[in-house]
């Protein structure tokens, strides 16, 4: 089956007074129809930048240097703004990182969802759109009577659900959820993520979850892409990544987070800071923090290649640590 979304060699830089911030620097990955992908990495590694490039909602100072983003056979980067507006929400919808402020305070929540429906499906009447919103509210566990309320009358969790409902409004083929639950407390967070995964399966949509929390993502996503300093450093299905991470950074991330089953082992964070993307290190970008770094790492950038079936990494010295073994060590 061919890919629904295929990103090839995407580079997106931000122009600043000090130079170019290389926020996305040669990212490639593919996503099949109905598949879910988790995009994981520390803050500032460029996850949101990838998502915004796909939606073509870039900041004024952002510049796409090269690459292709094929969605449903079309290269989104070559579309006119008008054609792109047809892809937005109808083809790809997005749940933004700052979901709490994603609703316009002066309009009723239901009307904001209806607006999306009617924009993309002009033949739908207002009443039909209301019916659809009602159904969506039920799907995400909201009282449909709430659709005539304003955003300030919603709690954080309700807003989040309303936004999920909104993202589903036009039956998109792909939903990008950028840290969809970070503003919520852990219990609600878990519940909402599970619900999203359930809906995604039920409606057979593709999904990109973005998070810095690999443990949370592994629960809901089939594939995981690990991002570091503007590049994807490891990519595989989530079981493999979780059980047998090969890239030193992924291994580091794993030990940064306690396993969800709540074992009380101390957090081992990766020492050091991610590099400044204005002027990243010339070899492997992780080298300054990597315990396995050698001279070649400092000199030459490791190629991104398939080391196992459907398991890609960019590292000169792939590690073979099993997750279980590492647990015992710690």
């Amino acid at each position: 089956m061919s890919a629904l979304l295929s990103i090839e060699g995407l580079k997106m830089y931000y122009d600043t007074q000090k130079g170019s911030v290389k926020a996305v620097d040669g990212v490639s990955f593919q996503l099949k129809k109905g598949e879910s992908l988790g995009l994981v990495g520390e803050s500032g590694c460029g996850k949101t930048s990838v998502a915004m490039s796909i939606m073509r909602l870039l900041a004024e100072n952002a510049r796409i240097i090269s690459g292709h983003i094929y969605f449903d056979g079309k290269d989104l980067l070559t579309l006119s703004e008008k054609e792109m507006n047809k892809v937005r929400w109808k083809g790809i919808s997005m749940i933004f990182q700052a979901a709490m402020n994603s609703l316009n305070p002066v309009y009723r929540v239901g009307d904001q969802i209806i607006e999306a429906i009617i924009t993309h499906e002009p033949e739908v009447t207002f009443e039909q759109a209301r019916e659809r919103v009602k159904a969506l509210y039920e799907l995400v566990g909201l009282d449909p009577g709430r659709m005539d309320h304003y955003p300030h009358e919603y709690s954080g969790g309700m807003k989040q659900r309303a936004i999920i409902a909104m993202s589903l409004a036009c039956n998109p083929q792909l939903i990008i959820a950028d840290e969809p639950t970070t503003a919520l407390d852990v219990i609600v967070q878990d519940m909402i993520l599970r619900e999203m995964a359930r809906i995604q399966k039920k409606l057979n949509m593709s999904m990109i979850y973005i998070s810095h929390d690999i443990a949370v993502i592994a629960e809901v996503a089939e594939k995981i892409a690990i991002m570091y300093a503007g590049k994807i450093v490891e990519f595989s299905d989530s079981k493999t990544i979780f059980k047998q991470p090969r890239h030193p950074y992924t291994i580091g991330l794993m030990s940064s987070f306690p396993s969800i089953r709540g074992s009380k082992k101390p957090l081992v964070t990766i020492p050091g800071e991610p590099p400044n993307l204005l002027n990243p290190p010339k070899g492997c970008r992780f080298a300054p923090r990597c315990p396995f770094a050698t001279n070649v790492c400092l000199e030459k950038e490791p190629p991104y290649k398939e080391i196992d079936k459907e398991h890609f990494i960019a590292c000169w010295h792939p590690q073979g640590v099993k997750r279980g073994a590492e647990d015992k060590d710690a």
Binding site: W89, M94, F96
Partner: peptide, 17 residues
């Protein structure tokens, strides 16, 4: 600069709307 403007754009609404 508000997030709901980004949302409105993401919804594919015409620039004028």
């Amino acid at each position: 600069k508000e997030d709901f403007i980004t949302t409105a754009r993401a919804k594919g609404l015409p620039d004028r709307v």
